[in-house]
Simulated scan of single mutants.
Amino acid sequence: MIVDDSPYFLNAARCLLEGEGIMVVGVASDSAQALQQATQLRPDIALVDIDLGSESGLELADRLRHETGPSPPPVILISSHAEDEYADLIVASRALGFLAKTALSSGAIHDLLAGRDGHRDAPVTGPPGR
């Protein structure tokens, strides 16, 4: 699942990831849509933009963890800004990690999943890629 307030980015990211073999089960442009879709679709992972316009992707990452049932999706934070601009917030979050939007790829997602330390989120069930 991809959450971003830019329709252009949602489309581009979906096309890129699906072209690389990742099934994108849903896209959302705000927190309400993201929470609804995460609850209904049960994605294996959620890519969440840190800056969702008037909303906070960091807050959404926390809400996804607490409001989407017993097996919330791990969250990878994404942004067009450099990681160092948000470094302290990313470390303090419950997110699995961070990817710059320019580095987004199935390989980068799989690398983050493979490097999980096992104590932040519940394990991903099934193969990564939904």
Rank of each mutant, 00 (worst) to 15 (best):
E55H: 11
H66P: 00
L35F: 06
T39G: 07
L99F: 12
D84T: 14
Q36H: 12
T39V: 09
D49F: 09
A95L: 11
A82C: 13
P43F: 01
V75S: 04
S79M: 12
V24A: 00
L104K: 06
L10R: 12
R42T: 06
T68P: 02
R42Y: 04
L112D: 12
D84H: 15
G26Q: 02
D111N: 14
L64W: 10
R65Y: 13
L60H: 08
A32N: 10
Q36R: 14
E20Y: 01
Q37N: 11
A122Y: 09
G126E: 06
I90C: 09
M23N: 04
G57P: 06
I2R: 01
N11G: 01
A38E: 00
R130W: 02
P123A: 12
L10F: 03
Q40V: 10
D62A: 15
V27F: 00
S6Q: 10
E18G: 01
I109M: 04
A46K: 01
V25E: 05
F9E: 03
I50K: 12
L104T: 02
A82D: 15
E85N: 15
I50L: 13
I90G: 08
V124P: 02
L35K: 06
A87E: 15
G126P: 07
D4I: 03
V124R: 05
D121K: 08
I90L: 07
P7T: 01
S71F: 08
G69N: 05
P123N: 08
P70K: 08
I109N: 03
I78M: 13
V75E: 02
D121T: 15
P73C: 03
L89R: 13
R130S: 05
L41A: 11
G126F: 03
A12Q: 04
A95R: 08
A100N: 15
G69V: 03
S105P: 09
V25Q: 01
P74G: 02
L99C: 14
L96S: 05
I78E: 06
P127D: 13
S80D: 12
E67W: 03
V91A: 14
L104S: 04
G21V: 07
S31D: 10
A32D: 12
L10P: 00
D5L: 02
L64T: 07
D121C: 14
Q36P: 00
M23Y: 02
V27P: 00
V25N: 02
